[in-house]
Design a protein around this nucleic acid. Sequence first.
DNA 1: TCGCCTTATGCAACCACTTGCATATCCGAA
DNA 2: TTCGGATATGCAAGTGGTTGCATAAGGCGA
Lengths: 176, 176
Amino acid sequence: MSLPHAILTSLAERPGSGSELARRFDRSIGHFWQATHQQIYRELARLEASAWVEATAVEGAPGRKRRYRILPAGRQELERWTGAALAPPAIRDELMVRLRAAGEVDPGDLTHELDRLLNHHRAQLATYEAVRERDFPHPPASRTGLLQLLVLDEGIAFERQRIAFCEAALALLRNP
Amino acid sequence: MSLPHAILTSLAERPGSGSELARRFDRSIGHFWQATHQQIYRELARLEASAWVEATAVEGAPGRKRRYRILPAGRQELERWTGAALAPPAIRDELMVRLRAAGEVDPGDLTHELDRLLNHHRAQLATYEAVRERDFPHPPASRTGLLQLLVLDEGIAFERQRIAFCEAALALLRNP
DNA sequence: TCGCCTTATGCAACCACTTGCATATCCGAA
DNA sequence: TTCGGATATGCAAGTGGTTGCATAAGGCGA
């Protein structure tokens, strides 16, 4: 389970409040490890109880805003986890199940759904490419930057592969 | 949630018992939607309660073996689901989080874990390629076969991408 | 025939995630 | 000045997935 360490990583990159983290997840790390704001708040409470992060109330902000910062023990935990045993990814790909099902029964409106999915992946690809142009106009010099770019490029490769796959599936379903 | 429909699809392809389904998942559909035998048995009980599958006891077998078969109502449900709204995949990729973390702290033994992961993906690729040679020596003629091959080839493309990515990450972590 | 191994099925507890809703606080507009 | 909207945090119930263990039945060797 990676959520606590995804949050620790995000806080190591930059301190922030729960809602800021939720927005950061939507734009950055969350592209690889999604989390709702409820998950993030609950996990922040646990991280604080473990003394891996500390929080200070932010005055003059709406709600009861608290700013979280990673503590040395949290950085140490993140380091331990980074080198710990890494399980192969648990694949849960509904699209593949659908297509296997479409081989057994009438696919119905599946082509319409594939079209919607294709649009989603094209939009996601455009997002990644915009981030790449904005954040990495030149090859980064630091190891941190190189690793961030590597991960971003994997996202781009994934979306491209997905787009090609949706197109192939649509071609197959449309031409009997 | 796709597990009930993954099971219905598998039973539509061929009837079988819970343990046979569990083995089939390990080799086939489970490459895209993993499930333990406990999940499968629980789900089979629900599918039976919904009258989407029926079971008959198998005599002369160890345990209390029961053979499941999809019913017309189950096939109808599978058809409904095939055309239903399809959500974009929920990505949860621990490897990407690790690499972002490795940009913030000392990566420790991460290269060793990446080596193990690389071996896993190479083995998985070899498995897929063996299945492809065995099951699809010639291009399939049926729509069912074409869809199965499409899904299999996506698995192959995924493993290749993953192998290239692990190699790139290793090169980056080893050459500072 | 007794005990053990294997196959097959299943229960129960736990944990993470999802969803819907509730509360707190600030700010600006009526 | 108070009321509604936006921001921020949080609770609680329901669901799916994981893990450890339990039970049932056939087969086989001592």
